[in-house]
Amino acid sequence: MRYYLAVIFPFFILLLLGPTLIRVLEFLNYGQQIRDEGPKSHLKKKGIPTMGGILIILAILITALLILDLSSYIIWALIITIGMGLLGFLDDIIKIRSRRSLGLKAREKLIGQVLFALLLAVYVYLYTDLGTFVILPIKGGYINLGYWFFPFVIFTVVGTANGVNLTDGLDGLASGVTLIVVSSLAVLISALGYGQLTLFALIVAGACLGFIWYNSYPAQVFMGDVGSLALGGAVASLAVLSQTELFLLIIGGIYVVETLSVMIQVSYFRCTGGARLFKMSPLHHHYELAGLAESKVVARFWILALIFALMGLASFYVI
């Protein structure tokens, strides 16, 4: 029964409280800031309420307190989720107050993300039986990372958080992709016997489902960095606490592709003296500028996210 409640509770929390939050954000004039160099079709989105991710965090927290046994694993999953969300909150507030599309400096944001990731790595290393082992896809068994475990966890947490953040660029894109990712992780984690983490994954899925209600095209509210970084923290903590970080690289393939598109674009721009490989990065904007409707880009990325998720699950069940 708790598996059903884990999805239903956060969904209805968002469904019931969403209109109130949207009105409050509108009253506070917490509107989205649009990049000048972005697609011209996005100019109409300027002023649409942002920071809707606050409700995602509240739905996750309230549901977790109601139906989960607050084991240390769950407490740390919540710490990373909320902590990363607070970083995003600061970023969003700076953007809104300064009326620009850039908030915290990249270095400031990175330091905060690394700090939370390092805290999670130290907890796993010192206070759990997980040690420095991760599960290998396809081949099966475990690999001992030794002291490489710490940079590996930092890479997982920071990479996932920023991957979700970069994916959050079109209506319903990040919330839909993350719904697919955490639902797949729930199947994987359940097979490994982590009952409470499975419930946590389903809670995050329910929160994403509820947010899509308001964030699908045309969006009534955006999650902001407070939502995308919190979701990234939740997904990464699930992977680290279940030793499934390498599976996340496959299941979260959209995050990987979006991040790589930015890295490739920047590198190509610098190496060629200003030329661009993509019309714009992250990759979803490239397809928008190529003429695809926003809703079609989102739908196709959801399909690809599902394919990546099935590939990740297949790599586990062949073990």
Rank of each mutant, 00 (worst) to 15 (best):
Y3I: 09
L5F: 14
A6Q: 02
F9P: 00
F9W: 04
F11S: 00
F12N: 03
L14W: 00
L15K: 11
L16S: 14
L16T: 12
P19Y: 08
I22P: 09
R23S: 14
L25Q: 07
E26F: 03
E26K: 15
L28T: 08
N29S: 14
Q33K: 11
I34E: 04
G38L: 11
H42C: 06
L43W: 07
K46E: 14
I48P: 06
P49C: 08
T50R: 12
G52F: 07
G53I: 00
G53W: 02
I54V: 13
I54F: 15
L55A: 08
L55G: 06
I57S: 08
L58D: 00
I60P: 02
I62D: 02
A64V: 03
L65C: 12
D69E: 15
L70D: 10
S72F: 10
I74E: 01
I75R: 13
W76D: 00
L78Q: 09
I79N: 02
I79D: 04
G88F: 02
G88E: 00
F89G: 03
D91V: 07
I93H: 05
I93M: 11
I94K: 14
R99A: 10
R99C: 01
G103E: 03
K109T: 12
L110A: 15
G112Y: 06
Q113C: 09
F116M: 13
A117D: 10
A121P: 13
L126Q: 09
T128P: 03
T128V: 01
D129Q: 06
L130S: 06
G131L: 02
F133H: 14
F133K: 15
I135R: 12
I135A: 11
L136Y: 07
I143N: 03
I143C: 04
I143P: 10
Y147N: 09
F155M: 15
G159D: 09
T160D: 08
T160Q: 09
G163P: 09
T167W: 13
D171A: 11
V177D: 10
T178D: 07
L179K: 10
V182Q: 07
S184A: 15
A186G: 07
A191H: 10
G193A: 08
Q196G: 03
A201V: 00
V204A: 05
V204D: 00
V204R: 01
A205V: 01
A207H: 03
A207R: 06
F211W: 05
P218Q: 12
A219V: 07
G224F: 05
S228V: 04
L231I: 14
G233D: 10
S237G: 04
S237R: 05
L238T: 03
A239G: 10
A239F: 09
S242G: 04
S242F: 01
S242D: 00
L249V: 15
I254K: 12
V262W: 12
M263H: 06
Q265V: 01
S267I: 01
R270P: 00
T272D: 04
T272Y: 07
T272E: 03
T272Q: 02
G274V: 08
R276M: 02
L277W: 10
K279R: 15
M280T: 00
P282Y: 12
L283P: 11
H286I: 02
L289M: 12
L289R: 11
A293T: 00
E294G: 12
E294W: 12
K296W: 01
K296R: 14
V298T: 13
V298K: 11
F301D: 05
I307C: 11
L310I: 15
G312E: 06
L313V: 05
A314Y: 15
A314E: 00
F316Q: 05
Y317E: 00
